[in-house]
């Protein structure tokens, strides 16, 4: 592998500081070993190699691609693939993000939760939010539902007792063409306060 110039910072920035970073240039002594990233998905740690072989994570792979194609977690749906519809929403360190607009290679060390990670792995018991979606028939075709549930999960994580307006705001990036939105709002409100 080609030797790559690298740089090492001599002064680190701390939060809130505005020190200008000055660096000195270094040349790596050794060729880089295969880059690896580690991703915790639904509590399970995945160590993955970066590269272009089929079992590896290509730098161009989105998190949605990795979840669906590499890890087989097809519960995360891709609809618009351009960050506009929310179907691919997952939690990253507890926050809702769009897995279609996230590069997997930039998720090293992150904790990801997908729709598959909400129900109890031992008993299969549904998350109260999932149960509320079942009870309120808060879906029609169901394609947008996993993303919808993940957005709602993030919302309830931050705000366990949201108002109706806050639920709508929390789901403002999620597309439902069948218009199950009304039932979704009811389901999320019903689940609020009961969540973990």
């Amino acid at each position: 592998m080609e030797k790559r110039k690298s740089v090492r910072p001599v002064a680190f920035l701390k939060k809130g500081e505005d020190t200008v970073v000055r660096t000195q240039k270094l040349t790596r002594k050794k060729a880089r070993a295969t880059e690896r990233i580690s991703l915790t998905v639904n509590g399970k740690i995945h160590e993955m190699e970066v590269g272009t072989a089929s079992h590896q994570i290509d730098p161009a792979h989105t998190l949605a691609h990795t979840l669906r194609e590499t890890l087989g977690l097809t519960g995360t749906k891709v609809s618009c693939d351009h960050g506009a519809c929310g179907s691919c929403t997952v939690l990253m360190d507890g926050k809702a993000v769009l897995s279609c607009m996230t590069l997997t290679i930039e998720c090293d060390g992150k904790r990801i939760t997908t729709i598959e990670g909400l129900s109890d792995p031992e008993t299969g018991e549904l998350d109260p939010l999932q149960q509320a979606f079942v009870d309120h028939t808060a879906f029609q075709c169901g394609f947008c539902t996993p993303g919808m549930i993940m957005s709602a999960k993030a919302l309830l994580g931050e705000n366990p007792s949201p108002t109706e307006e806050e639920v709508k705001e929390g789901l403002s990036g999620n597309f439902c063409r069948c218009i199950s939105n009304y039932h979704v709002v009811k389901a999320v409100l019903a689940a609020s306060g009961k969540g973990r």
């Binding site: 929310g86 993000v97 929390g170």
Partner: peptide, 9 residues
């Protein structure tokens, strides 16, 4: 700007 998910990123 956009949506909660976008603002988180």
């Amino acid at each position: 700007v956009a949506s909660p998910q976008i603002r988180n990123a």
